[in-house]
Design a binder for these strands. Sequence first.
DNA 1: TCTAGTTCCTCTAGCGGCTAGAGGTTCAAG
DNA 2: CTTGAACCTCTAGCCGCTAGAGGAACTAGA
Lengths: 136, 136
Amino acid sequence: MLTIGELSRRTGVKVPTIRWYEQAGLIEEPGRTAGNQRRYGDTDLERLAFIRHARDLGFGLDSIRELIELGGHPERPCADADRIASAHLDDVRQRIARLQRLADELERIADCGGHSVGECHVLNALGDHHQCAAEH
Amino acid sequence: MLTIGELSRRTGVKVPTIRWYEQAGLIEEPGRTAGNQRRYGDTDLERLAFIRHARDLGFGLDSIRELIELGGHPERPCADADRIASAHLDDVRQRIARLQRLADELERIADCGGHSVGECHVLNALGDHHQCAAEH
DNA sequence: TCTAGTTCCTCTAGCGGCTAGAGGTTCAAG
DNA sequence: CTTGAACCTCTAGCCGCTAGAGGAACTAGA
């Protein structure tokens, strides 16, 4: 039996976050001591590790909820899990592409060029959208 | 004199967002009609375009506030503007790197491999952090 | 001048995913 | 039995908006 603090230490998920996951329906309500403190078992440990890992990979809580649901039915086809992961991958790739465009644009304007604010390339470029190389 | 709706149409910033920028101190409180409606001038149009552009480039509102402040003092050295833009560029680059690591990991696990949830590569990989190629 | 329809006003609440703090209780060690 | 750490609940805040309620003001046409 683990206290919430031990669970936190073992998974790297902060204590308030664990309580918040419970509230959000990602983990089951655990048993309690006579004094109303949460006590966790190995199942909770595994599930929280799963959540932690999925969060690290950038999955949203809704996706994680779905994945957990799926995990509870080992006989069902896993096309859904595939779909969720692929959709997420697409999303991540799009975010990368967008950020890359931003980085390119920022690189172009980030080298100030002048000495005082009045002739500052950065501020001028920001003020005038027509100077941009690409849409964003 | 522009109504808030016209300003919105010309800058592509939604009406509630304009009001919110005012609240957040990014744009000045505009004049009002006798009936208490906001009326904007060209200065507001320019500033809002500036804000819009900076937001598109991913600057946070705090940075934008600083940049606006700087823009108001054309005689001052522009090292600060440079610093803000470079810091932001660094930040964007870091986010790209992180997302790239995620994408790599997701690519590795996203192809399910099995047919039912029980043997699903995706769910197993998520459950077991040791299968990961790199830290994240 | 009246009316209809659009736009505007303020205020409040909600999104995701936590995080922080107040104020109080329970547990474990000595 | 006392101490002090860890726990409890509840509320509020972060960013950058977005949505909706309920009402007032503008504008074009009849």
